[in-house]
Design a protein around this nucleic acid. Structure first.
Lengths: 112, 112
DNA sequence: ACTTCATTTCACATATTTGTTAAATAACCA
DNA sequence: TGGTTATTTAACAAATATGTGAAATGAAGT
């Protein structure tokens, strides 16, 4: 039930409704009805969004009587942050080295 | 040409081919043919992937004769990292506070 | 001008996503 | 048992995404 592949996580987070749900869950657990309340969509739609988030490993769900409270998981968010930051800084360092090299001997720029 | 909305950026990064292209571009500029080489898809497919990345603000493209070298942009990656890390740490702090509260007076757990 | 190389656009097929309404579960309450 | 509340599943429609092969564009080389 926790695939946790970056593909699936990023796809899950690319939907604004789901990202808002994740934002809401960062403030604490919530039930399906509570999560659905701010959005102009029907409950089945929310239910499917939650299933997508669960499949991505971004949430877990408990059962507490009729309620099924959702809880955020940290790991996939950490992986997203790590991947983006790693890629970003790799390129940043490349740019720094390039700049240093250009400073050493003069060149013309190609990207305006 | 640079929408830079988190939606669009995350959707762009959710495709494994595109994420691999971004990874490749973190090592330096490359042309369309160079980017296409590792993948078992046709050039039109790569061309469309690049258009998606450009539309997300993740790359820029120069024209250098027949070549159209692609270059990575830092900003959207930084935004992704910042959003994920912000959300993650918000929930982490919530959990810490909850734990502290539970340590203060005893309770039973609800999530196994 | 003709050819070649790099890249894009077109037209199309298929698969996936997102939403809807109506019906089905599941647990609680009277 | 029957009724209400919370949530999910089923069946379907519309929009979007991804890939292909064939043709078009654009710049360079001869």
């Amino acid at each position: 039930m926790k695939s946790d592949q970056l593909d699936v996580v990023l796809a899950a987070l690319s939907d604004p409704t789901r990202r808002a749900i994740v934002g809401r869950l960062a403030e604490g657990e919530a039930t399906v009805l509570e999560l659905a309340e701010p959005f102009p969509v029907t409950l089945p739609a929310i239910s499917r969004h939650l299933k997508v988030l669960e499949h991505a490993g971004l949430i877990t769900r408990a059962r507490n009587g009729k309620h099924r409270p959702c809880r955020l998981r940290l790991e996939p968010l950490a992986e997203v942050a790590a991947w983006a930051e790693h890629t970003r800084s790799a390129w940043e360092h490349r740019l720094d080295r390039l700049e240093a090299h250009l400073a050493a001997d003069q060149h013309e720029t190609e990207h305006p």
